[in-house]
Nucleic acid binder design. Sequence first.
DNA 1: AGCAATTTTTGACAATTGTCAAATTTGAGA
DNA 2: TCTCAAATTTGACAATTGTCAAAAATTGCT
Lengths: 258, 258
Amino acid sequence: MRSAEFSGKNVSSPADSECPDKTEVECRQCGLFGFLQLFEGLRLDLSNRFLSRRLPVAKGDRLFAADDPFRGIYAVKSGCFKSYSVLEYQGEQISGFYLPGELLGLDAIRAGVYGYHVVALETSSVCQLPFSHIDDLQGELVSFQEQVIQVLVDQVRHDQRQTLLVGRRTAEERLGAFLLNLAERFERHGFSGGEFRLPMLQNDIANYLGLSIETVSRTLRAFREQELVSIQGKRVRILNPVCLRSITQYCATTHAGG
Amino acid sequence: MRSAEFSGKNVSSPADSECPDKTEVECRQCGLFGFLQLFEGLRLDLSNRFLSRRLPVAKGDRLFAADDPFRGIYAVKSGCFKSYSVLEYQGEQISGFYLPGELLGLDAIRAGVYGYHVVALETSSVCQLPFSHIDDLQGELVSFQEQVIQVLVDQVRHDQRQTLLVGRRTAEERLGAFLLNLAERFERHGFSGGEFRLPMLQNDIANYLGLSIETVSRTLRAFREQELVSIQGKRVRILNPVCLRSITQYCATTHAGG
DNA sequence: AGCAATTTTTGACAATTGTCAAATTTGAGA
DNA sequence: TCTCAAATTTGACAATTGTCAAAAATTGCT
């Protein structure tokens, strides 16, 4: 079975996902799983190349740097990563956090190089899907879809520039949405969304959300005082998701183009 | 030749692009052109379906609405469109402006419905690339790329939610970047980037950038006083692009993931 | 050209968030 | 457990932007 090929664990019983101290995402809930299933449909000599390797990554280690040549895509197995670019006069700008089960480096497939830096925020591990022979795969691709992908990549790029420019949310709304988003993503991959460990510093959160660290600290205190969440150290518990969601207007946006 | 099939103009000489009063994008500089070229490579019975039609659109008319079933993608030939979503308590949120040569509705291909509303800001025209038999085309698609596209679409979605949340740019930086971006896009499609007509209201700009209309007005005045731009009515001239760029830090960002 | 509606501009003031400085808490390693 | 560096919290004040109200300019229409 394929999932056993890229995970250290051979068997994962359904009961595992209930374990509160679980720290590693299961293969079936990992983003790579969908990809590997797809390779079943490709020519066998191709799919042979896509056996993935398991790698440990120490806290602070860099998984890849911007402009590194594309080596493959990664799935976070455990721990947490941040991606960032270095802006001319403003130092680093964090563009995303990656939790267990999520994919890294996908958008480098077409560019041939990674577009940003990625480092581990804590002791982590990843699975790699190496693309050393990506050129062969290209032969399988339909050019129409390449065009679609190119446009989507362009749009991602535009949206991310836009992200740097636009902001109409208050500090409360940003932080509330941030916490709910984290909870949702933990839950999607089989962890508890109601209680989890914050893998990143408030400094990183502030950078990511475009706020000062003081504002982050003060806003979290306000949430605590309203008993919306409980925070002790890195331990976060969502006490009142309904109210938090209404503060945040988290549901409001459908997706959009531009 | 294919370009003649979806444009009213049969011949467009290179000299056309120098005409200052030019108002319509040429076929070769239109986003659809790339697509149509790709269809040459597909089976003929497929490519027959992709003859596109030319449509006039009056100011204020809606090209499509959110949740309309997917009819095809559009290329703006002349005029300007805005896309927007309706947020629960905040009215409309503009997500993008579309100039001649740019594509609309691409991201609805997989969803099957459009994800936002699009209306004309002035008398405009579009070319349509109808996808009434999109299902047949699916047979040509490689599932690996579908997966890639899905992930990219998810990322676009995430980034756009992020766009609503995050903001670290001052009003000056946002407006400056906005004007430079418009200029760049006009230029890319063969218009003058140094002087152009603003197709949208300050009201729309404010909405798009997450500012109040008063701040937009005041910031534009500041630009005028510094002689960075000249603005009379809807006529915009970029007087000092170098300085404007440095205010804006427009070049700073590489692209990013998350 | 003239009128009416829309859009833009301007001023005064309020609210949110950032900045600077310093105290306190937390956590990793000896 | 202790120590020291890093991270978080807190307070006072400044800067940017939003809000409300009203005047001026522009645009579309007859």
